[in-house]
């Protein structure tokens, strides 16, 4: 009996996250409302508070938001194999679709009309990325050191060939030192 119900749980995790993967365009934060509806309201797998913590964890860990939340929910509901099923489910729709798409993608792009369409579409991508910059800038605290970090990262990326991974590591280290220093100095003021 226990076996039957746990197999069922794996299937439910897989199919729910398959649906989430198949019906969210653009990925990332666009997925949060659907994940919330499915996992908190429909299946009651996690609580509203878990959901908020999950978003916070997903924001503070590397990787893909969709995968982060699938792994988290799967693990909560049914341990390791639950995490595997949910993650597999969320990835599968994209994987299959892009595999099929890429078979005729390049010949598709050689078409004169498609090429003309894409010359316009590239302009839209500029706008989408500018939009991402504006959105992300709202999450950054406005103080001298953070603005300096943003400008430095921009300048290094535009004018040098430094590995972006190194830039991120350096920024993380500076962030830790700055936050520690700030904490110590406010502690001293309070004392």
């Amino acid at each position: 009996m226990k076996n039957a119900s746990s197999t069922n749980k794996y299937w439910e995790l897989f199919s729910t996250f398959f649906k989430i993967g198949a019906f969210t365009f653009g990925g990332g934060y666009a997925m949060i409302p659907l994940i919330q509806r499915e996992t908190v309201e429909n299946h009651e797998w996690i609580s509203e508070e878990d959901m908020m913590n999950m978003v916070a964890i997903a924001e503070s860990t590397p990787g893909v938001l969709a995968v982060n939340s699938a792994t988290f929910v799967g693990c909560r509901v049914a341990g390791f194999w639950g995490a595997v099923c949910a993650t597999f489910g969320v990835v599968l729709p994209s994987f299959v679709l892009i595999c099929i798409l890429s078979l005729f993608y390049l010949s598709f792009l050689q078409n004169k009309w498609v090429a003309a369409a894409f010359s316009g579409i590239r302009c839209a991508v500029v706008l989408l990325m500018a939009n991402a910059v504006v959105k992300l800038s709202k999450q950054v605290e406005f103080s001298f050191i953070y603005i300096l970090l943003a400008v430095l990262a921009f300048v290094l990326a535009v004018f040098t060939n430094i590995d972006t991974i190194l830039i991120l590591i350096a920024a993380g280290v500076i962030g830790v030192f700055y936050a520690t220093w700030k904490k110590n100095s406010t502690d001293r003021k309070e004392a």
Binding site: L136, V140, A150, L168
Partner: peptide, 15 residues
């Protein structure tokens, strides 16, 4: 702390 430094750097990189 690390995140507070990485976020602005990511901003610069995306820009």
């Amino acid at each position: 702390g690390a995140l507070s430094g990485i976020r602005p750097a990511v901003l610069g990189l995306i820009a």
